[in-house]
Structure formats: C-alpha cells, structure tokens
Design a binder for these strands. Structure first.
Lengths: 342, 342
DNA sequence: ATGAAAGCGCTAACAT
DNA sequence: ATGTTAGCGCTTTCAT
C-alpha cells in the first residue's frame, strides 16, 4: 500500500489484474499511466479483467487517465449567486482540457488556513483558484504551496496572476449615468471594506461625486460587514428613520439593491421616481425583482473560464511569465433607474 | 513514485526529510500516517526539516493527517440557491469529524457518467453524496464504485440510503391551506418530471384537489423541463393569454413562484387578492420579492448535515445496516397568500 | 509491444 | 519511541 490514509478500502491491485488478464504488472502500469503505447488487444484483455473484478468503468479510465489532474476553486460563499456562473465557466475550461475541477467553500484566514492547506494536500490538488479575499500572509503561504490564480478579488502584492474587472471604472460609469439622470443626493451601500472590490467601488463613487461637484453625505455611505439582505434592510431603515431622503442609491451588489427597494416600499417611496437604484453583478434577483434592477453586469462565465485557463497554463508550464486579465463590464439599464416606467 | 499521474511536481520525499532531520524514513512515515506514537521532540525536528525544504505547514499536516479522507458532494446546479445551505450543512458535518468535502456540479447521465467516475477515482474520493436525479443505470454503477448517500432527490431501487423530506405530504399541507382560504381554481407549476420530488409534488397536488372535490384543469398544470424563471414566465404568459384566470398557483420552487408574481403584475392581477401564490424551498428570493412569498421550508442545513454524517458512517463502518432519514418541512406564510395585506 | 527484473517510495514487523 | 529490515505496490529500464 502507498501513502494514502487508506480510507478507501478494497482497492484493486495491479497484480490481480495482471493475473486475471494474463499480462504482467508492467503492462497494467503502462496502461493506467498512459506513458507508453499498448496494443488495443491488450487493453481489451484488461477491460475484461476489470469487469471480472466488478469494475465496469475500466475502458474509460484507461483511455483518459493520462490527462490532467485536479483543480480546486475556492469561493467565500455558496449563498451568493454571483459565483454560480463563474464556477460554470471554470468547470467548462477544466473539462475541455481534460482536467477535473471541484469547488470548496471557505473563508480563508488565520484560523482556517491550516485546514485549508491540508485539504489541498489531501486531495493532491494541482492548482487553485480563489475568488476570496485572502489576507496577505495566507495568500503568500498558499502561493508557496501550490500554483495559484486569483479571480475577481485579488491582491497585487506577490505577483500572483489574477482575472478580474475594473471595479472603479464600472462604478464611475454607473454613477455618471445616475448623475446624468439628475440625481444629486446619492447614497452608497457597500460590502465589507476588506475586499478590494469594495474599496475600489467606494473610490469610484467618491471620484464621481467629487468630479460632479456633488456634496457627499457620509451618513449615506453604508459599509456592511457582509453582503446580507437583512443587514442592508436594517441599515437603510436606520437612515430613513433619521428623515434622510436620498434620491438614488448605488449598491455594490444586487442583493443590497433589492434591500433598498424593499425599504423604499415600506417608506412609501417609489422606485425609480423618488429613488433610483443601481445594483452590481446582474444576478438573477436583479430581473426577478419588481421593479427590475439596473445593474452592472460582469462577464462571470468568462471570468471563471479565463481564471481556469490561466491556472492550467501555470500548472503545466511551470514558470510562465506572469500575466493578468481584466475584462469589461456592462451597465444594464432596467426599471429601477428609468425616469418613466410603464 | 506512485500511482499518481504526476501532475504535481517537486514532491518532497520521506528520504529527504529523514536526511535533514537525522531520523529514519520509518519515523517520518509514522508521523505522517499517524498510526503510531511519536515524541514531540521528534515532531519538532521534522517540522524544522520541512521548513528547511520550504514547507511551512508541516506541523499541522503532521497533527491532522491521520484523520478522514475526501468526500464529494454532487449537485445539479450552482445556480439554484436551494443547494447553498445544504452544502453548508454537509461541510459542517465533514469538518467536525475531520473529513474534507468538495463540491462538484454535474448532471449525471449516460454521457457524463464516465468522466464523473473518473473524477471520483482521480481525487480518491472516499464517499459521495448526490443531490441529483441520477438515472437508475448510472446510480447503480456509482454505488458499485463508491459508498453513496442520496440527498433530497433519491431512488429506492438499489438500497442506497437517503436523506430527504416527504414531498407529497408537504404539498398537501400547502394545498389544504390554499383551499382553506377559499381558492378553488388552483394551478400548479412544476419542475422536471424525471425528478422524484416533481412526481411526488404533482401527486400531492392531485390528491388534495380530488379530496376537496375541486375540478382539475390540465392546462393549469405546467411541467417545465428545468427550474427556470424565464421558462416559467413564458409558460404562464401563454396561459394568461388564453384568458384563463386561476385564483391561486402552487409552485414547486420559489423561483417559479417569483415568475408567477411577475406575470400576474403584467396582467394587472393583484397578489394575493386575485391570485394567491405559494412557492417551495424558502430560498432568499422568497423574502426579497414583493410581495414576499409564502413557501414550504425544507431543513436544508440539516439535510446536508445528516447526509454527510450518514455517508461517513457508511464509509468507515463498511456494511452498516441501511437506514434512511426523512425530515420535516414547514409552511411559512407570507404576503403572497394572505387575504389582507398592509 | 511486452515481460522480467531492478529500483523506488512507503509501510509494517521486529528488535531494542 | 525509534531504527533496522523485510516486503509490497508501482514504475522504469532493459532485453526481446
């Protein structure tokens, strides 16, 4: 037996297959590693031997086993639908090239990093994509352990490649649109500031307000400790209770935009007439809600796809030159910001 | 070198560690397998040796490596938020017991099964939970390959344990509630009929209608090929275009309920006054939507947790007696079904 | 293309 | 608790 902690029992050994098929263990080894030519006839013998051992997937395993290994995609939360399409994209890229991809949900920080690295070792992951915010110390530690690509959220510090968007620019385009509609008293509902995307969106918001000479009301800038509908509802209720009546909200997530719309309804404010609302991510909720939500669409599928491609490149090509990818976003105008709705 | 396709390079060998630490390979082996006692001093030596080799996670790896292996949780779609909490539950159960859990998204059928089994082999999965509909042939094949537990969706055919709810009963309770509100002309928007849950919910719907002596209009029973908001909108638009005006809809998913509400709004029908709507799953959208959606809540976290527990039991305890778990559901009444809303 | 046999990495049995 | 040594499974080399 080998390294494994031996949880999987009843493992079939080459010796057995060799005996049943009348071949040598060397040939069996060659077949499964795919590192040498074997005759079709010989393969057939092995397939039959496997069948006799109650393993019916022999043929495929033989054909495909020589290809890529396992990649892990880590996300902070299954609950945020933003990641769904990203992972579909990543999975496509992996499958196309004969690699496997599995997904892990974990907030990576000082207290979880040990177990996380253990996980990567245990499954013999060949590479990792993170869509998380990872504190610098942990990021560096991971990068030492395994080929790494950052997706969406990233840190430029350690020359780790990333695939992302320009959050600041995307935010400015949405803000300029809001301002062009005549909105002046614009609030901002943001996610956790430890995320780079949150810092960049905040910066984009500030720049747009300043550039247009609009006064910024700090009480209208909400920093939530996480992307949470309920937390956003509470925070906005507090604001409205103070009597403030902004005429627009830019939100760092569609989920937060949905919360704004809900609270507006409770206070008898019409969206978009009284309050225009813009979200971020173009998640399903943005077109299911009433009114439908104007939002910034990220190329999620492509983000995941490119991240995975980049990772495979790095895993196979050792020390390829570092290159990053920045993809375009798109403002999708829906009911929550239009002046006149049907 | 061993079995591995050798994608991961630069592997550290026990011999190296032994030389640097001045110990024997046997001791290194003992430390990593955890199958024998080793002195703390000795461990320290190894930790230092690992550090010298640029591996900084040595200590933890040593401490924890003796524990469980890898479990895989397979779901049909990342896009359906219903699975988010299930996976959190499963992950908790795994972590508590020192097992690792990764998630895979795959529709399992005749054309994907080979690659899927290859995946399980490649990552050396010790066990599998499926939340998918898996056709009988593929289900049997998987069960031969690896310890298996079914979660939510299941097939009784091959004595594979499952953790689920009573879909038929849950549906009847919702239907009885609708009927008690005086609704008589009740439509049903269902998911793909290949899913057992869809068949059971349809049956529950039929039984309730019959029991109450209500006439069933087959054109008001919609079978969608997948849980899709857009498909539901189209189907409902067709119905409303024919002039039909049911006074309630029971939906096999909150996503479909959201679609009903949207289409009702387009046709000037008030929810719940003109049309009462009930969904299924208590997904986030159900309380974000306006009106909020009455729904059947499943104990998602517990479903995932129990499925994972059951799996670990089966993996470790070989031939434990088969036992299944059926958990309770709860009807959560919200605005979309209440006669008088604020 | 295949087998025989040597080599390698890991584990287990035995001795201390 | 640790080292020695035998043994096992897999890969690779060499010969055919």
């Amino acid at each position: 037996m080998q390294t494994t902690t031996d949880v999987q029992k009843n493992r079939v050994h080459y010796k057995q297959i060799a005996q049943i098929s009348g071949l040598s263990v060397a040939t069996i080894s060659r077949i499964f590693t795919g590192r040498a030519k074997v005759a079709e006839d010989t393969k057939d013998k092995v397939v039959k031997a496997l069948a006799a051992l109650g393993i019916d997937d022999g043929l495929f395993r033989i054909k495909e086993n020589q290809r890529g290994g396992l990649l892990v995609f880590n996300i902070p939360s299954f609950g945020n639908p933003f990641y769904a399409k990203i992972m579909s994209g990543a999975k496509s890229a992996a499958t196309q090239r004969g690699w496997q991809l599995l997904v892990n949900e974990e907030h990576i920080n000082d207290s979880t990093i040990d177990n996380f690295i253990l996980l990567l070792q245990k499954v013999r992951a060949a590479g990792l994509v993170t869509a998380n915010h990872v504190p610098p110390a942990q990021l560096q530690r991971i990068a030492k352990t395994i080929p790494l690509v950052q997706c969406c959220e990233f840190d430029r510090a350690f020359d780790i490649p990333y695939v992302s968007i320009d959050d600041s620019m995307a935010t400015r385009s949405a803000m300029e649109y809001l301002i062009s509609l005549g909105r002046r008293n614009i609030g901002f509902v943001n996610g956790p500031i430890r995320y780079k995307y949150a810092r960049e969106r905040l910066q984009g918001y500030r720049e747009s307000m300043e550039k247009s000479g609009l006064p910024m009301d700090p009480t209208l800038v909400i920093q939530l400790p996480e992307i949470s509908y309920n937390l956003a509802v509470s925070a906005l209720t507090n604001i409205f209770n103070t009597g403030k009546r902004p005429d627009a909200f830019f939100c760092a997530s569609d989920i937060l935009a949905a919360a704004v719309i809900k609270v507006c309804a409770r206070y008898g404010l019409k969206v978009p007439k009284d309050v225009a609302v813009i979200g971020f991510d173009n998640v399903d909720i943005s077109f299911m809600s009433s009114p439908t939500i104007t939002t910034i669409s990220q190329p999620e599928f492509q983000l995941g796809f490119s991240a995975c491609e980049l990772l495979i490149e790095r895993v196979t090509n050792g020390e390829a030159p570092l290159h990053n990818i920045v993809l375009d976003t798109e403002l999708i105008v829906r009911e929550s910001s239009q002046q006149f709705t049907t």
